[in-house]
């Protein structure tokens, strides 16, 4: 075969494939089935995203078309803004708490209640209840719990002869309070993932381990947890992406205060971008958030994917 022929081969191959596709109806199916998803995806994800990138180059208050091009100034200001640093750090704290406290807690509880018995069903329901609550409602409820005048925390402190503490007005305690609520709100979700996975672990493996004399702790540690690793990886992914998006709980609890100390990236972009009508600046924050989320997702998939192959 000459070199000329070789270059012609793929071209002919492509034409063949198209022809084959037309005959088999695959191509028609593609034409019919692809556009709805593609259009919806472009309209509601790609297009707004491209818009956000475009707007982030302008100083724009949302009126008329953006015209005041400022280059990378919005990004510069964002990176220099101390409140944005706080927001980033707070988001990082949320991720750490989700991974190091929330997930082990959920796993422990899942190991306790995964067997199908009536009492376990009751416990599962109780643990899952916070997740069912609307975020805003949960935030409001907890803002009452932490209230320094009428809240449960202050009643408890009073009962112990202590002074009231205004948790949500305190720079030091407001964000730990929020983290507590977030752990409480979402551990049930992770627990459910683990329960579903634990129920799929073959019973004979657990029994075999028991026959070998493994204690319940050892069964969990050396049989069950390794076998549900895929579920843990998935729940870790949800925990990270969820932490990046925390918004609705914070707004009713502290609204980002006191002194902007409890912002996450999303509440930051909401109050400094949208409510202040700095659409360009908010878009820059949104783009940064998007890049972070994509970056973390990509990195996570790659590292955990490699791990499971090994």
């Amino acid at each position: 075969m000459t070199t000329l022929d070789r270059t012609a081969v793929p071209r002919r191959g492509n034409a063949d494939r198209v022809k084959k596709g037309l005959v088999s109806g695959k191509f028609t199916a593609l034409l019919i089935l692809l556009p709805p998803a593609l259009i919806l995806f472009s309209l509601f994800v790609i297009l707004p995203l491209a818009d956000a990138v475009y707007y982030s180059g302008f100083s724009w208050n949302g009126y008329g078309a953006p015209s005041d091009f400022v280059g990378s100034q919005n990004y510069q200001r964002l990176l220099d803004h101390s409140v944005f640093h706080t927001a980033l750090w707070n988001t990082a704290k949320l991720i750490l708490v989700s991974l190091l406290i929330q997930m082990p807690l959920a796993l422990g509880l899942a190991l306790l209640v995964y067997r199908k018995t009536p009492t376990n069903t009751l416990f599962r329901l109780v643990f899952f209840l916070p997740y069912i609550l609307a975020e805003v409602a949960a935030g409001l409820i907890w803002s009452f719990v932490f209230d320094g005048d009428y809240g449960i925390t202050s009643s408890l402190l009073h009962a112990m002869g202590q002074e009231s503490v205004y948790v949500l007005a305190d720079h030091q305690w407001a964000f730990p309070a929020i983290m507590t609520v977030i752990v409480w709100k979402y551990f049930g979700f992770h627990m459910m993932i683990y329960i579903a996975a634990l129920q799929g672990v073959p019973k004979d493996l657990v029994e075999a381990a028991k026959l070998e004399g493994a204690k319940p702790r050892q069964v969990a540690l050396f049989v069950q947890i390794p076998l549900i690793k895929h579920a843990i990886v998935v729940s870790g992914f949800f925990a990270i992406i969820g932490s990046l998006q925390i918004f609705d709980i914070i707004i009713p609890m502290t609204n980002g205060g006191p002194s902007n100390s409890t912002h996450t990236i999303v509440t930051y972009l909401y109050s400094f971008g949208l409510s202040r009508l700095n659409i360009g600046f908010g878009s820059a924050a949104a783009v940064v958030l998007f890049v972070l989320a994509i970056g973390i997702a990509f990195f996570y998939q790659r590292t955990t994917g490699k791990g499971s192959k090994a």
């Binding site: 707004p48 956000a52 707007y55 982030s56 918004f247 909401y270």
Partner: peptide, 17 residues
């Protein structure tokens, strides 16, 4: 308060809304 789930792209809200 109107709260969208697509927090990462809310800034195109004006035009599409």
């Amino acid at each position: 308060m109107h709260v969208s789930n697509k927090y990462n792209v809310p800034c195109s809200l004006p035009r599409h809304l």
